[in-house]
Write a protein that binds this DNA or RNA. Structure first.
Length: 278
DNA sequence: CCTAATCCCTGTAAGC
DNA sequence: TGCTTACAGGGATTAG
């Protein structure tokens, strides 16, 4: 499940590989990836465009072309953007849904086992709904502990959401998903079930610090490969060895040895240490 | 306006 | 062993 660190890793790698290259051909093997966009139009519009910039916002990667065209890539659960050969041709991969042929003879393969991911081609990023309701980027200056304290104080007046559920809300903070939400709260020693109005200033300061710390460490380790995540070279990330709670139900807490608990919050799994996080 | 549930998808793993 | 069923979850959509 590519979250901020995974998408950032792919973005940084692709920048070194494809900037300045032209799209010479687009082959869409499964139209569900482009939703209601017209297949022929999608292919034609991209053909001949040059990749001039790649950015990331929350969990979305934006490939910017000349002529004011943008391709918004959201990998969701099992999406991959892999650079190299045409995987559909060389490996008969059924997960390869879209292939972009590049002017250097290489390919960009969009793979997606479960088809939750989406590719959106637009001439105006303002038109992409997802991008226009996002909270601050946690690794940018705008995400300050004073901002977090003030915002949670304001939010807690009208909602009593559990902090774990709140961390998954992309309109609150952008880019945190289910793995890192659990990891951040373990690092901050805060109970994921604690509701917003019960969080004090010290706890919020810790959540802020842990968010920056955990996400930076995960970027440095090239992300977490629990299942399908692969970087642009098809390689796994390395953050699994740093994971403290996610996926560790009934295993010992590295801090206090008591068993890691798994609970369900908003139809999603949360992992935590009930002894360390209270 | 808000929050909570449902849906989309398919490989994997648990259960009978 | 082999088949069936439950589960994983980001975010759009729908229901309440």
């Amino acid at each position: 499940m590519p979250e901020l660190p995974e998408v950032e890793t792919i973005k940084r790698d692709l920048e070194k590989l494809v900037l300045g290259l032209k799209i010479t051909q687009v082959i869409i093997h499964d139209v569900r990836v482009i939703q209601n966009q017209i297949k022929g139009k999608f292919e034609d519009e991209l053909k001949g465009l040059t990749i001039v910039k790649i950015t990331r916002r929350a969990k979305a990667m934006v490939i910017q072309f000349n002529h004011h065209r943008y391709l918004v890539v959201h990998l969701k659960m099992t999406g991959q953007m892999i650079y190299g050969e045409d995987l559909k041709q060389t490996q008969k991969l059924k997960e390869t849904k879209v292939v972009f042929k590049l002017s250097n003879g290489k390919y960009l393969n969009y793979n997606d086992q479960r088809l939750f991911g989406r590719l959106i081609l637009t001439d105006d990023l303002q038109k992409v709904a997802y991008l226009n309701k996002l909270g601050p980027e946690p690794l940018e200056k705008e995400f300050a502990s004073s901002w977090l304290i003030a915002t949670v104080k304001e939010l807690s007046k009208r909602r009593k959401t559990a902090i774990k559920v709140q961390l998954l809300d992309q309109t609150f903070i952008a880019g945190i998903g289910n793995i890192y939400a659990s990891e951040i709260l373990f690092d901050a020693k805060v109970d994921p079930q604690k509701r917003l109005h019960r969080l004090n200033q010290d706890e919020l300061t810790r959540i802020h610090r842990s968010t920056v710390k955990v996400l930076n460490a995960a970027v440095k380790q090239r992300g977490t490969s629990m299942r399908n995540y692969r970087d642009s070279a098809g390689e796994k990330g390395n953050f699994m060895k740093t994971i403290k709670v996610y996926g560790r139900e009934n295993e010992g807490c590295f801090n206090c040895k008591s068993l890691i608990q798994r609970i369900s919050q908003a139809q999603r799994s949360t992992f935590y240490c009930a002894a360390c996080q209270r």
